[in-house]
Design a binder for these strands. Structure first.
Length: 278
DNA sequence: CTTAACGCCTGAAGGC
DNA sequence: TGCCTTCAGGCGTTAA
């Protein structure tokens, strides 16, 4: 479900409510998000911890605690957090998998219908395996146009598939990969290695533009995504191509096309995003 | 090393 | 209405 803008939105909200609060008690309703870690061990590790920093890296949420241990969460398709203030009537809670009860009477709930999401605990000073293989953040200064061009060079796969490769660049998913390619007027099926330096430069600029705007609109809510207060994003109203199959292209009015690429739908305008040459 | 298919799950939506 | 099929904001594993 969530890509960089949705995770960023969630992290900003979590920061505002969790800082300095202590985990008093945890209930594990389903152990799958914990992977191989046994629920009792998970509880023993985390009960008593006090939240310090909460950060995003790619699509990961990184909860840091005051003792420098951390909890790395990936929401995958349908994972989501819900924050319950103290003494407020509770709404419906479908697919509740984990509950963290906090020192001020509030609670942080984890819901995930499809159970793809993951939680992993890291003791202080441990290297976070997930981050070691992650590509650069789109907004990181080290990701210059030349650096991005180097990433594309030598990759034979389609540029859209490269954008989805978290080892190449972190944070993009199907929605924003399609949207950024449309804004660049690049065909999603072009080989990454065939892109010119100028095309890579423009693509990187458009990736950042699209992500910035989506963050400003608090993400895209098409089916499941909502913030920790159940607020939906509004970027779905600004989508140019994603989910717009057979609707008119906002630029040329010709119908948007949906093709399956690597088992996943790709939305694009065949006219504005010209097919690769021979 | 890179690439592509498959599997993990469940609920919503669409077709008949 | 109801049943059946298809589809989904992701990614780790496996095989080639």
């Amino acid at each position: 479900m969530p890509e960089l803008p949705e995770v960023e939105t969630i992290v900003r909200s979590l920061k505002a409510v969790l800082k300095s609060k202590q985990i008093l008690k945890i209930i594990v309703y389903h152990s799958r998000p914990l992977g191989s870690l046994k629920p009792l061990v998970f509880k023993r590790l985390l009960q008593g911890k006090v939240f310090s920093e909460i950060k995003r890296r790619g699509k990961y949420i990184c909860f840091n605690f005051e003792d420098n241990s951390s909890l790395i969460v990936h929401l995958r398709m349908t994972g989501g957090f819900l924050y319950q203030k103290p003494n407020i009537p509770e709404g419906a809670k479908d697919h509740l998998r984990l509950a963290f009860f906090l020192s001020d009477g509030s609670s942080l709930l984890y819901q995930d219908s499809r159970l793809f999401g993951t939680f992993r605990y890291y003791p202080p000073q441990a290297a976070i395996a997930e981050f070691l293989v992650l590509g650069p953040e789109p907004f990181d200064k080290s990701l210059t146009p030349d650096a991005f061009h180097s990433i594309c060079k030598g990759r034979k796969l389609a540029i859209k598939d490269l954008l989805l490769d978290q080892k190449a660049i972190a944070g993009l998913g199907n929605i924003y990969a399609c949207e950024a390619l449309f804004q660049t007027r690049l065909n999603p099926f072009r080989r990454a290695s065939n892109l010119t330096q100028a095309e890579c430069q423009l693509l990187l600029t458009k990736i950042k533009e699209v992500l910035r705007l989506a963050i400003r609109f608090q993400g895209t809510s098409i089916r499941d995504y909502q913030n920790i207060d159940r607020q939906k994003g509004r970027f779905q109203n600004l989508l140019s191509v994603y989910g717009q199959a057979s609707k008119p292209c906002p630029v040329c009015q010709r119908p948007i096309k949906r093709l399956v690429q690597k088992q996943r739908p790709t939305f694009f305008c065949p006219h504005c995003q010209k097919a690769p040459g021979p």
